[in-house]
Design a protein around this nucleic acid. Structure first.
Lengths: 343, 343
DNA sequence: CTGAAAGCGCTAACAC
DNA sequence: GTGTTAGCGCTTTCAG
């Protein structure tokens, strides 16, 4: 089954293959008569253009790379869906790669993708180190970072205001009368994580509360590991009236552990998540959470990347979208123990 | 920022660019001395091979296309993760495309992907019509169908025994004493769907039960639409003691609707799902379901595709994996109304 | 309006 | 061992 090329069409049509190229790419100077005839013949012969060859001369592949930690994470897969849709609309295809939270694999992914001449890359970085690791590749390939505030680094990114998100969440819990809130699943290594922890921490301070953290040692959230950690939380015997989870997936694990320990949510302890994945809206889950505007994030990332592909020289830009509080049923009002009345 | 090519390296090294090619691709005849020197120079110059050019001559891209209905579906994204991992292990990259359950878009995706010279394609078809629509492309590009029994059609596929799955589920419900089981979310257009419905239907018949179907008119499952349908189910006032949902996502919607109507699961009605997505294991969800071995499916699909890429002439093959029952808490034993005792 | 020729970056015969 | 040459499929000057 040999594939039919432009030359095959040319010889059948009895013209030079240049003419065929022109007829097919619709570029300018060609007789309407011959054009139609060639297009017709090409169709009959089942011709389909070889994009690889075309890319080689055009020096663009109309392909963008997407590297994420884990495509099966609900948050990520939802964003990936929107990114693919946006890319598609603009005539771009997606090459997907899971880094598994591994910086080495991120680097390999960049090597592979730049080798494949992708026009640009969107990366949800695994770690703080990521930036430096992939820096050499970003010199030649426009890159936008997803969900990560790159601060002063020369990098384009779109993210949300994580600091504000956790502040907002803490504020909400405080307004419900909670004074003993533990932050579950703090991690290190990325600004996003630090900022989330910081927003909570600063809010606590401003309300005169003592921040308390449960740190999560692993790079990628797995339900199982988060569940183990949540068990320790409840087994620890510490006092707290609310837990603010670093992500919805973690919150779900807390929910599960609470269930195992006979702790009722929200009667015994309130639970607040972050991300607003679809399953958080489920009945009996009904997780109150901080929403990330996923569709807007995806659209902004694609738009930004396409902009940089067109004008690579432009200064780096950033878009910081705002999260919002989605109130469902996992947090309840309680009577604050001492200082003051609930608002 | 011009990219450095093999020629640049050659001129710096003072050799012909063929030599550089040989040095870099490590193929055979070249002096160990010069090889090392060239590799060194290439590294210093930041050379990175242009895979596009290489693909053009090699006539392979080491890329496989993956087209799915919706990457954000939990089942799909999990399978996609495993597929990407498997592909990666074998040195292949993934081009991802969402068909959104749309046959037109599937066709466009095939056109695009074959144009990009992918070495093969894995497709989770949207519809029965899919096969015929993409047939012309499969002539030149090895294709394996995912999650769809292609029957006698000349096509390679890996799927599970859906018929057995629903039979097994129905049998289980029957064994718990259920005699009025409704099948929620039957759809048309794919064998998979028909087979699921049929397994249930035949099992009912063999147990002397009357099959009852709630049909789902849409192509892609959205929680919202499934929820609406589930509401109608409970609003209808029909009698039933168990519902067997076509997918876990649908089961979750049933759960939600039940909640809204004050119907308790499993006290008032038992609920059985299909797929075993991660969230079904959640506390308070704890959905009993038919498990699809996702990792095995992914591995089989990649293996099969790679096999066909290597030997395209081979006869079409199929792998039909077996589903299994995962018992959790959403189905309970009841006293059968009349005929006989529960086992 | 159409054809000839060059070349995108790389590999693979085939010489030397 | 290394260089020369051709060519993968296509687009794009540049002539005519």
């Amino acid at each position: 089954m040999k594939k039919v090329t432009i030359k095959d069409v040319a010889s059948v049509a009895g013209v030079s293959y240049t003419t065929v190229s022109r007829a097919l790419s619709g570029s300018g100077d060609i007789g309407e008569e011959t054009r139609k005839r060639i297009v017709q013949i090409a169709r009959e012969m089942g011709y389909s253009p070889n994009t690889v060859a075309r890319s080689l001369v055009a020096r663009e592949t109309k392909t963008i790379g997407l590297v994420v930690n884990n495509i099966s994470s609900p948050y990520t897969s939802e964003v990936a869906l929107y990114i693919e849709e946006q890319a598609w609309v603009h005539g771009y295809s997606l090459i997907l790669c899971n880094s598994c939270g591994n910086v080495e694999k991120e680097q390999t992914a960049f090597e592979l993708m730049t080798g494949r001449q992708v026009d640009g890359i969107i990366i949800h970085p695994a770690d703080e180190e990521t930036y430096h690791r992939i820096l050499p590749y970003t010199k030649n390939t426009p890159t936008v970072f997803l969900n990560e505030d790159m601060g002063d680094l020369p990098a384009s990114y779109v993210t949300i205001d994580n600091y504000k998100g956790t502040w907002m969440g803490t504020e909400y819990l405080h307004s419900l009368g909670h004074r003993e809130i533990v932050y579950f699943g703090r991690r290190w290594g990325k600004r996003t994580r630090t900022q989330r922890a910081q927003g909570y921490s600063d809010a606590c301070e401003s309300y005169g509360l003592t921040p308390r953290f449960i740190d999560y040692p692993h790079a990628v959230t797995t339900s199982h590991q988060a569940y183990q950690l949540a068990r320790e939380l409840f087994a620890g015997g510490d006092r707290f009236t609310a837990v603010f989870a670093n992500t919805d997936v973690m919150a779900l694990s807390v929910l599960q552990a609470a269930d195992a320990f006979g702790v009722r949510i929200p009667e015994d302890v309130s639970l607040l998540g972050f991300d607003n994945i679809v399953f958080s809206a489920l009945p009996k889950i009904n997780l109150t959470t901080i929403e990330q505007p996923k569709q807007a994030i995806a659209a902004a990332a694609v738009t930004m990347l396409l902009g940089r592909i067109k004008l690579p020289k432009t200064e780096h830009r950033s878009r910081v979208l705002v999260p919002s509080l989605v109130i469902r049923d996992s947090c309840r009002r309680i009577d604050p123990p001492r200082e003051e009345h609930a608002v």
